[in-house]
């Protein structure tokens, strides 16, 4: 039997970590773009747009991410598309991330005082101008800490893509375990790598919350 040193295990896990990081970035950026679109729909003046965004968010937040991954993986195949695991994983994670970011950002936009909307309307601004020049710059400041905080959930969410066969950190953990028969060491290391990715994000979210909250402290 081949002996594996801890370094062998760690090296292979770190190589797979690149895919976890890449998938997290893609999901977060893509989810942010779709989430922004959903945000506009969610606070739109049209009832149908609001309802669509509301049910979209309810649907994606009310069902397990794992099921969404399965549906993306098997559902796209129905349209005759040959679905590689990375595509299904990316698609499901983008849609899932978008639903959470849209809801987080809606909270931030709605926390802006009503008077700001009215004041900008009285200056003759259109809805988009109001958002662009008055509401979003203020909402952005409140939105940064919870958005950074949610990025932790995205990184952790990528672990589920191992189940549909995308080889990232968790899948590498399973593969390496099967080769080395050292589940305790391998999963322990996998957990530590995830911790090393997520903890700085959690911490910076907390620090940002304390720093950016200055303007709102005197309510």
């Amino acid at each position: 039997m081949i002996e594996f040193s801890t370094w062998d295990i760690l090296r292979n896990l770190l190589l797979a970590t690149r895919w976890t990081i890449l998938l997290s970035l893609v999901s977060f950026v893509g989810g942010g773009a779709v989430g922004l679109l959903l945000l506009f729909l969610r606070i739109s003046k049209r009832k149908a747009a609001r309802a669509f965004a509301k049910y979209y968010i309810e649907l994606f937040q009310g069902t397990p991410l794992l099921m969404q991954l399965f549906l993306a993986f098997f559902g796209l195949g129905l349209f005759g598309i040959d679905v590689p695991a990375w595509l299904a994983a990316g698609l499901a994670l983008v849609l899932w991330t978008a639903s959470f970011l849209a809801e987080i950002w809606r909270g931030c936009v709605e926390s802006i005082a009503r008077g700001q909307w009215e004041a900008s309307a009285s200056l003759g601004m259109g809805r988009l101008q109001q958002m662009r020049y008055v509401i979003l710059p203020q909402a952005l400041k409140i939105a940064v800490p919870p958005t950074v905080g949610f990025s932790v959930q995205v990184v952790k969410g990528t672990a589920l893509t191992s189940i549909i066969g995308f080889v990232e950190l968790s899948k590498a953990g399973t593969v390496v375990t099967n080769a080395t028969f050292q589940p305790f060491t391998v999963y322990g290391l996998v957990a530590l790598i995830y911790f090393a990715l997520c903890w700085p994000l959690s911490k910076s979210s907390q620090i940002l919350e304390r720093k950016l909250n200055v303007a709102h402290r005197n309510h």
């Binding site: 932790v152 191992s162 968790s170 953990g173 375990t177 999963y187 995830y194 911790f195 997520c198």
Partner: peptide
């Protein structure tokens, strides 16, 4: 530790580790 690692890995650690 728990809040910054995926549930899946916690599960594998408990069941396999």
């Amino acid at each position: 530790l728990i809040r910054n690692t995926p549930f899946l890995i916690q599960l594998f650690f408990i069941f396999f580790g």
